[in-house]
């Protein structure tokens, strides 16, 4: 048994190494993201320049942290949904979860931004409800009997997303046509944030959601291998599904309320994680947190710097990277699985 303990330590060491590598990538991405932008901020400037310092602490730092939180969330949600549905093309955008969330948030915003119930922004709750409604709807459409048709799942998700976006545009135009540019930026996904207050508001929702996903990682791994086998191995499939729906809807709802529907982070990052650390969801899911945070920080740094003084919405960057990646994956996947 000492031998077996050693291997267990070895594989757990391998897990530790994987997480250390992912964390190191995140640190590097953070450094680049903090430096890059229309204003390049270096350490000497930070020490001696009051303007640079103010830009850094009021704008740059909160924004990079926000990108990190949202990126980590979307990537982990993507990894969880891919495993749950055994579909490598699943992610918040392609399953309509983002769309539903933005419709919920859109309605709440139209009815008045600042409203709160028991200290909780109404917009978060509305977006959570929207996300939950759309994932349930998409799942019901795609499931027939014991099987979830992978093609139907994606089609239903994408159409729900289109409907939700159309409804958001309609609502916002009806209320205030002068805000059309703002709405457009939000639909594509953008990270305008000043100060830390929004981050503090998000954390009570995001942290429990993250924890739940980590707790169900093993069930998700078994489901990714095979649903019926997972059930026979002791996974309560319906309960795991419900837990993942609730957690992912909450997470996506909150991130969409803050940053709009930033697409494809949840698709690209879990694939990178699996490429680096193997197919095991117990590795890929936690690694997706680190890599997702780093990925969105870099994408946002790019969005802030490529156009000079004008900022691109970060969703345009992730869409241009992730969209073609989706198509390439779909093409590659057709070799062994029919959609």
């Amino acid at each position: 048994m000492t031998g077996s303990l050693r291997t267990q330590r070895l594989s757990e060491q391998r897990f530790g190494q994987a997480m250390a590598i992912a964390a190191a990538v995140l640190v590097a991405c953070t450094a680049i993201a903090l430096w890059a932008g229309y204003e390049r901020i270096t350490i000497p400037r930070l020490l001696h320049d009051d303007v640079a310092r103010s830009v850094f602490f009021r704008l740059r730092l909160p924004r990079v942290i926000m990108a990190g939180i949202i990126g980590a969330t979307l990537a982990a949600v993507g990894a969880a949904l891919q495993a749950l549905f055994r579909n490598p093309l699943a992610e918040p955008l392609t399953l309509g979860v983002s769309g539903g969330g933005s419709l919920g948030a859109g309605i709440a915003i139209a009815l008045g931004w600042g409203a709160r119930i028991a200290g909780t922004p109404v917009v978060f709750i509305a977006a959570f409800a929207g996300s939950l409604a759309s994932i349930s709807l998409v799942y019901r459409i795609a499931r027939s009997g014991a099987v979830v048709a992978p093609g139907s799942l994606l089609l239903a998700g994408i159409v729900v997303n289109l409907i939700a976006n159309a409804a958001v545009v309609l609502i916002e135009y009806t209320i205030d046509p002068s805000r059309s540019l703002e709405i457009l930026r939000w639909l594509v996904g953008t990270l305008d944030v000043v100060g830390f207050s929004l981050i503090w508001q998000m954390l009570p929702f995001v942290l429990p959601g993250w924890l739940v996903l980590l707790l169900v990682a093993r069930d998700l791994h078994l489901l990714a291998v095979d649903e019926e086998s997972a059930a026979s191995l002791g996974v309560n499939v319906r309960r795991s599904e419900r837990i993942v729906y609730l957690a992912t809807s909450l997470l996506v709802g909150v991130t969409v309320s803050v940053g709009g529907s930033i697409g494809f982070v949840g698709l690209v990052v879990p694939h990178i994680a699996r490429l680096l650390f193997g197919q095991d969801t117990r590795f890929a899911l936690p690694a997706s947190f680190f890599l997702g945070a780093g990925f969105l920080m870099l994408a946002d740094a790019l969005a802030r710097s490529v156009m000079g003084q004008t900022e691109l919405p970060v969703g345009a960057v992730t869409g241009l990277v992730g969209g073609p990646f989706f198509l390439w994956l779909m093409r590659r996947r057709q070799r062994y699985v029919m959609l």
Binding site: V225, D226, E227, S229, V337
Partner: peptide
């Protein structure tokens, strides 16, 4: 229990399965 068909969505190795 051995199901009739099992999923093959991800390229797991046989040993992992």
């Amino acid at each position: 229990y051995v199901p009739q068909n099992s999923a093959r969505a991800f390229p797991f190795t046989s040993l992992e399965v």
